[in-house]
Design a protein around this nucleic acid. Structure first.
Length: 280
DNA sequence: CGGCAAACCTGCGAGC
DNA sequence: TGCTCGCAGGTTTGCC
């Protein structure tokens, strides 16, 4: 999916179109996404003005003027497509459609339906079951070397799996874990508990720099992901290891002929990409 | 606790 | 051209 940089890109696009606008029409095209939509979903949103569009980890939090919060997760294939009302064409898998008082249409489109929406209250949304257990925001100062080391201490699971665990740090997914570990020169196979001190500091710095650059580039993009505007993100062109099996890594001083370049392994049923010459 | 597989669901590209 | 297979950015659950 959309990992943190993609969700942040979507958040910015939605904020430009939605903040301060009234939702004059809300259309719900099916009773459920990953979970059933809450009771009175349409009635609780229609006519409300959007106060703010925020983000926590990979969740979008769209706050209304009555303190209702529309919680959105894009899952693997979820998109928020923005267009003018007069040009809007309904497409398959448009599950929820929002229309603003100044003529914009936002369509939540999610073929695989791993995404979700729920309604919460502003003052208690942090305690929502989906948000309560999340770890620190990786781009905030609260995410730092000592804190990460403490969270990893004693864990025998591999470092890849630990960084995908949203309780350790919230917002990384399969692409940016591989990219961060490459930048930190740490092997995805290393035991998580062995990362402390300067290694933890380096890993935190790597995660922050990868995510910051990706946000700046407007996220990555695969075939089924577009930004709110419909344009593609550019970070995919900067992947060092993700989806680059067999190729030389960009900083290659690691004897390509011996290592065979970027290696793909499967951990927890998901692909991991790394350079065995650089990452230990 | 840990590791793994399966589950949720659809689409797409590769290979035959 | 058309079929089957494997794989895909996420997260949870259940089993050993």
């Amino acid at each position: 999916m959309p990992e943190l940089p993609e969700v942040e890109t979507v958040r910015r696009g939605l904020a430009l179109k939605l903040e301060g606008r009234r939702l004059v029409r809300v259309q719900q095209n099916r009773p459920d996404l990953r979970f059933p939509l809450p009771a009175n979903f349409v009635r609780r949103l229609e006519g409300r003005r959007v106060a703010a569009v925020k983000r926590r980890a990979k969740y979008l939090l769209i706050e209304m003027d009555d303190e209702t919060v529309l919680l959105v997760h894009l899952g693997m294939s979820g998109r928020m497509l923005v267009s003018r009302r007069e040009g809007a064409i309904a497409e398959p898998h448009d599950h929820v459609v929002l229309e603003t008082d100044d003529g914009w249409v936002v369509r939540f489109n999610d073929a695989r339906r791993f995404g979700l929406m729920d309604l919460a209250d502003r003052d208690t949304v942090a305690d929502h079951p989906l948000l309560a257990g999340l770890g620190p925001e990786p781009l905030e100062p609260e995410f730092n070397g000592p804190g990460l080391a403490a969270a990893l201490a004693g864990r025998s699971t591999n470092l890849k799996a630990a960084l995908l665990d949203q309780r350790i740090v919230a917002g990384l997914g399969n692409i940016y874990v591989s990219e961060s570990l490459y930048r930190a020169r740490l092997s995805p196979r290393r035991r998580a508990g062995t990362v402390s001190g300067s290694r933890a500091n380096q890993l935190v710095a790597a995660i922050k720099s990868v995510l910051e650059e990706a946000v700046e580039a407007g996220g990555s993009s695969l075939r089924d992901y577009v930004q709110t505007s419909g344009e593609l993100g550019y970070f995919q062109h900067r992947w060092a290891v993700y989806d680059r099996e067999g190729q030389a890594c960009p900083d290659c001083d690691c004897n390509f002929k011996r290592t065979g370049g970027v290696r793909r392994i499967v951990q927890g049923g998901r692909s991991t990409f790394y350079c065995p010459g650089r990452q230990r």
